[in-house]
Design a protein around this nucleic acid. Structure first.
Length: 880
RNA sequence: GCGGGGUUAGCUCAGCGGUAGAGCAUCUCGCUUACACCGAGGGGGUCGGGGGUUCGAAUCCCUCACCCCGCACCA
């Protein structure tokens, strides 16, 4: 032992010091060795925009647990960190900043604006690292990447050009999701649906040349200004004769054709008549194409009405225009009725603005040829997804996938490497062009940038030096660490990110970018609600770290992370911080008894181990097996619980208490004490290593004070189970000792005795060996059960309490005392319980179907149980 | 509408074919020189309803109810 542990556990005292120690030791950086088995993982790059929330804490804790576990298990381990430029999100942040200064990005101009964003990025780029550092993330910061780095940008351009050349990227006029606030197109997955209360307006459109009117229903009356048709179902008797005639569009006073369309119109819904606005509705767009209806854009890119909307509307905001249209229709008497209507409104998730479907010229990825192999990779097991239920979601989405809109009318991001000349030629090129290869005219680069997820999709290999096929021979990291092994991320980006990485990885590297994916759940509050600023139930991970330390937070996250959503509350974290405290204090106790020379002592002399020592080593071995097994299947909760259970309730509550008489010199020889200390050290040492991935700081702090062979616990070998340590006999006997002690304590409380009252315990082994065992451990029974005597051979006198525990008949004699009714009832209840169980097991055994069909071990178990119950019942009845 | 998940102790959840479990909360006793962020002990569940398969079902199948989450639809 080098040094003493501080009396109190104060994580803030040492966490940052420990992290600095690791960094200085270079333990985060793997070696450039192709021979050693490697383990690699890339971080889901957080947005540069800032503060880590509890979800980040979770996903990075889980990664770190796996990474530390693998590193300690001997793998040449790389955890590659970095950040994402997060196109829209980051641009938004800076735009909001500008707003405060009273200007817009358009006032500043593209170049100046992008400069501003870079400035902002530089100011904040260290924040993410600092925050991950405080959580204890053992990422290799020397390899930190940013999606706009030169190498990564090069990869983006290569991929774009290649896909274009392969005919998988095209530019076309199509109906896209347009965000009028951000003034850009976004992809389908970026549209979120919110249920909103709206109104359904029923409007009369007069039919030309008749006195009939067609009533259409719409939730967006302002779009009627752009109607170019009215559709009915071809088989609908009510309107059949009107097909081919014109309806007169109110307000605009434009005749528009009545067409038949069986796809658009559901006869059962509403009036069975649909207004068609090809320019501002996805379905209407398709219907317009089918029926040759013209497109008429009445809403512009900024969400305001265009000139085409007509005088009185041009320049009005969408919402204003709606009110105006309704007002005018009311004046005309064209509104038949207005209904309350709950419907899903598509909004842009990043800024909450209502999406405007809009026809626009954009760049797209033809996705099906990419999706097919990505589906196969999961189907044939090259990539596994945990929890497995997500695979269904993955297939469902991938099999119904639509082309991916990749162009964004933003300024912050990878500018599309396409070059246009005045003669209408467009050339894509990895390197910048100045003149058109076709006509030599000077060219200008496409102004659109790429969807952020286009570059994130390349993350597992673009971060490793991959910039195209030639780089595969020269990029060392790519050669050693690609493909990665595991991906740990939130399920919310399964489509955005995971699916696209698989598609790109397969297409460009010929391999899936990872073998296993673990999708973690959402962190919720204790009542299972989402954390939100409005509810005020947000837990800031950095606050928690300041209050109780990173280890308590990490352990709490791990112990609740089964793959489902995670209910997290402060009280819960508080609870697990008690566990960290427990580890601290148990270590403190152990270190009081561990001498310097023990550290380098020869291996434990197994021959001379006492039963309880063999027991604790056997239990330790079992938990070692369990933790390794559960981590390999991402059951962080099971692994953490097993450690919790073992360390607290087996090691602290029982083993340490059992070892105290020897350690403190109240019992046993000097050699016994030496061996006890040796075992204590062994268990603590292994426990710290087992716990390290979950709580790296506290384990390291203790480990360093303990003084190990390795310079740091994070590079000490992770324990693996050893069969020689398994000891069912010791487990059985120790379980009996524990149960007997518990029973005595029980009886003491039940009969109203105090801890000061001393009893005599009579016990008999079922063999001479067992009797000897109880003789050997009589001192323990006396100490822990507070007895004055243990009699192994003596015959219990009358008037003692009888019981059968773990197959051993015991009798407890205690001083005369008035027995209360309550205590008598208790005895009665116990007898009844035993009788009931006995009855049920007897009837079971009497059933021939059971003895015939059930597996032998189950039947045997039942027989043993029956015998036990019978013996116990007999003894209990003596207590009445 | 399609797909996935859920309904087990007051709360949060695990168990997913063979005697109902954990953590927290609660109650009782105890400041015993590692720890009161502690120790010892107790109480508390007809495993959402109904039906079926089985010697045996919280666990498998069917069905109903309610809740959550995707996707699609939403005139």
């Amino acid at each position: 032992m080098k040094d003493e542990l501080a009396k109190r556990y104060e994580p803030t005292e040492f966490e940052q010091r420990i992290y600095a120690f690791w960094e200085k030791g270079g333990y985060f950086t793997p070696v450039a060795d192709r021979e050693r088995p490697k383990f690699s993982i890339v971080i889901p790059p957080p947005n540069v925009t800032g503060r880590l929330h509890i979800g980040h804490a979770l996903v990075n804790t889980l990664q770190d647990i796996i990474v530390r576990w693998k590193r300690m298990s001997g793998f040449n381990t790389l955890w590659l960190p970095g950040t994402d430029h997060a196109g829209i999100a980051t641009q938004l942040v800076v735009e909001r900043q500008l707003e405060k200064e009273g200007i817009s990005r358009f006032d500043l101009g593209r170049e100046k604006f992008v400069e501003r964003v870079w400035q902002w990025k530089e100011q904040h780029s260290t924040e993410i690292k600092d925050q991950l550092t405080r959580l204890g993330a053992s990422a290799d910061w020397s390899r930190e990447r940013f999606t706009l780095d030169e190498g990564l940008s090069r990869a983006v351009r290569y991929v774009f050009v290649k896909l274009y050349d392969d005919g998988l990227i095209y530019r076309d006029l199509a109906m896209v999701n347009w965000c009028p606030r951000c003034r850009t197109a976004i992809s389908d997955v970026e549209v979120e649906f919110r249920e909103k209360n709206g109104k359904l307006y029923h409007i009369d459109y007069p039919v030309e040349g008749t006195d009939r009117k067609l009533t259409v229903a719409t939730t967006r009356p302002e779009t009627m200004l752009g109607d170019t048709g009215v559709a009915v179902h071809p088989d609908d008797e009510r309107y059949r004769n009107l097909i081919g005639k014109n309806a007169m569009l109110p307000i605009a006073n434009r005749p528009i054709p009545i067409v038949a369309d069986s796809i658009l119109v559901d006869r059962e819904f509403g009036t069975g008549v649909v207004k068609v606005t090809p320019s501002h509705d996805r379905n209407d767009y398709e219907a317009g194409l089918r029926n040759n209806l013209p497109q008429m854009q009445v809403i512009g890119e900024d969400g305001r009405m265009t000139d085409a909307a007509g005088a009185g509307f041009s320049g009005l905001d969408r919402k204003e225009a709606r009110a105006r249209v309704v007002e005018m229709l009311q004046e005309l008497g064209a509104i038949v009725k207005v209904e309350e209507h709950v419907h899903n409104v598509g909004i842009h998730g990043k800024c909450e603005t209502d999406i405007e479907p809009m026809i626009s010229r954009q760049w797209f990825v033809k996705i099906e040829p990419l999706a097919k192999p990505a589906i196969d990779a999961v189907r044939n097991g090259d990539v596994t997804i945990t929890p497995q239920s997500w695979e269904a979601t993955y297939f469902n989405w991938m099999e119904n996938i639509h082309d991916w809109t990749i162009s964004r009318q933003l300024w912050w991001g990878h500018r599309i490497p396409a070059f246009h000349c005045p003669n209408g030629h467009t050339t894509v090129s990895v390197d910048d062009l100045t003149t058109c290869p076709e006509c030599s005219a000077s060219v200008t680069q496409e102004t659109d940038v790429l969807d952020t997820w286009f570059s994130s999709g390349l993350w597992p290999f673009s971060t490793m030096g991959w910039t195209g096929p030639e780089s595969e021979k020269s990029a060392t990291d790519y050669q050693i660490f690609y493909p990665t092994d595991t991906l740990i991320t939130g399920f919310d980006i399964l489509f955005f990110w995971v699916a696209r990485m698989i598609m790109f990885g397969l297409r460009f590297t010929g391999q899936a970018p990872f073998r296993q994916v673990f999708l973690n759940g959402l962190v919720r509050d204790e009542q299972g609600r989402k954390m939100s600023k409005t509810i005020g139930n947000v837990i800031d991970p950095l606050d928690v770290v300041s209050e109780v330390g990173a280890d308590a937070l990490r352990f709490t996250l791990a112990v609740t992370a089964s793959g489902r959503d995670i209910p997290l509350g402060k009280s819960r974290i508080q609870g697990y911080s008690a566990f960290v405290n427990k580890i601290w204090n148990a270590s403190r106790f152990a270190m009081m008894h561990i001498d310097e020379e023990l550290r380098d002592a020869e291996p434990i002399d197994r021959e001379n181990l006492k039963t309880v020592e063999r027991w604790i080593l056997s239990r330790l071995n079992a938990v070692t097996r369990e933790v390794n097994k559960q981590l390999s299947v991402f059951r962080f909760d099971e692994a953490a619980s097993a450690l919790y259970q073992f360390f607290w309730h087996e090691f602290c509550d029982w083993y340490i208490e059992m070892a105290k008489p020897v350690l403190l010199g109240r019992h046993g020889s000097e050699e016994d004490r030496h061996l006890a200390k040796r075992v204590l050290l062994e268990v603590l040492d292994r426990s710290l290593r087992l716990l390290h991935p979950f709580m790296p700081f506290v384990t390291e702090e203790i480990w360093l004070k303990l003084g190990g062979v390795e310079p740091s616990v994070m590079v000490a070998p992770y324990p693996i189970p050893e069969d020689v340590l398994e000891d069912p006999d010791a487990e059985r006997l120790t379980a009996a000792v524990k149960a007997i002690i518990t029973t005595v304590r029980n009886v003491r409380a039940e009969r109203g005795f105090t801890p000061k009252d001393r009893f005599t315990l009579y016990i008999r082994g079922n063999s001479e060996r067992e009797s000897n065992f109880f003789r050997e451990y009589a001192y323990l029974l006396i100490e822990l059960a507070r007895l004055d005597e243990v009699s192994v051979e003596g015959e219990p006198p009358a008037g003692t309490h009888h019981d059968v525990v773990e197959g051993f008949h015991i009798a407890i004699r205690f001083p005369e005392k008035q027995v209360s009714q309550e205590q008598l009832d208790r005895v009665k209840r116990e007898i009844e319980k035993t009788q009931n169980e006995l009855a049920s097991i007897e009837s079971k055994l009497a059933n021939e179907q059971f003895t015939k069909n059930a597996p032998p071990n189950i039947v045997d178990g039942a027989r043993t149980r029956e015998a036990e119950l019978r013996a116990r019942l007999e003894k209990l009845q003596q207590n009445q």
